[in-house]
Design a binder for these strands. Structure first.
Lengths: 137, 137
DNA sequence: TTGGCGATACGAAAGTCTTAGTATCTACTT
DNA sequence: AAGTAGATACTAAGACTTTCGTATCGCCAA
């Protein structure tokens, strides 16, 4: 990449890669799990070697996305990154990069073509009302 | 990547990379533009070589994200991918991968997230109201 | 006609990601 | 104590991304 001038700092990769998100999703669902636990949770046609899964989790630990703890004879991995927090971060990023930094336009696009049920829409409006009321206090 | 069994098909990369999105954003804003046009549109501290920008646009054309047309002595690039469509596609993908396929939870997270202005919230509620009214008809 | 300039094409270097093979380690069984 | 099975560490190959340098092409002016 050359990086001759500027020398951007270490890139602190804040976002999960494709496979990392796949694994983290299982960990979020499980709460915690060993390599085998996570592997067993993946789609049956995923066909990923055990060593590949182990490598992925090890790398995720290096990146501080998870921690491991030796329990019995295996390592058990636990998310350090909360799903809520990651969802928020991702939405903020997407809003900035693709929706001109205005989250409202994101919601507009969502409610326009995502086929949301009337119940969902109503529920969300209730959320908004509650939120707006809180802000008044 | 090895790809020994299965030989997955060509991967038809449907999503823009980081830099491609950066460029596409400028093209969406401009409507169309030459390499120099796009380059001029980038942040002043971006410091990207002209040849780099040209390469990026050429690759984007290979991927069918843009088309070029020789106008005078330069190529003018035009988006093939509409911003609206890409926004929708991206939201659908994100919903599937990080929000359990329920777009409503996405909006919920957005609304819960601190740092949304009251104006934005109000605007979103207006959007929902309009949408709910339409559904009634 | 030729020199030079701007534009495009090509290719390479360095980084990251995904995947898996091989080596090592540990502990239990015999 | 040695062997084996399962788990983890290490290494590497191949793809893709980002960036830029060099080569080439076309054209206009001197």
């Amino acid at each position: 990449m050359m990086m001759r001038r500027g020398m951007r700092q270490k890139k602190k990769s804040e976002f999960l890669t494709e496979v990392e998100l796949e694994f983290m999703t299982e960990l979020w669902a499980l709460g915690e799990g060993s390599v085998r636990d996570v592997l067993a949770q993946l789609a049956p046609d995923r066909n990923l070697a055990y060593t590949s899964a182990a490598t992925i989790l090890r790398i995720m630990e290096q990146k501080n996305f998870v921690v491991s703890e030796k329990r019995g004879k295996v390592f058990v991995y636990r998310p350090l990154l909360a799903k809520d927090a990651y969802q928020s971060k991702t939405l903020r990023d997407l809003s900035d990069k693709l929706f001109d930094g205005t989250p409202a336009s994101m919601v507009a696009r969502l409610v326009d073509d995502q086929g949301m049920s009337e119940e969902a829409l109503t529920e969300i409006r209730a959320l908004l009302d509650r939120r707006l009321k809180d802000n008044d206090n």
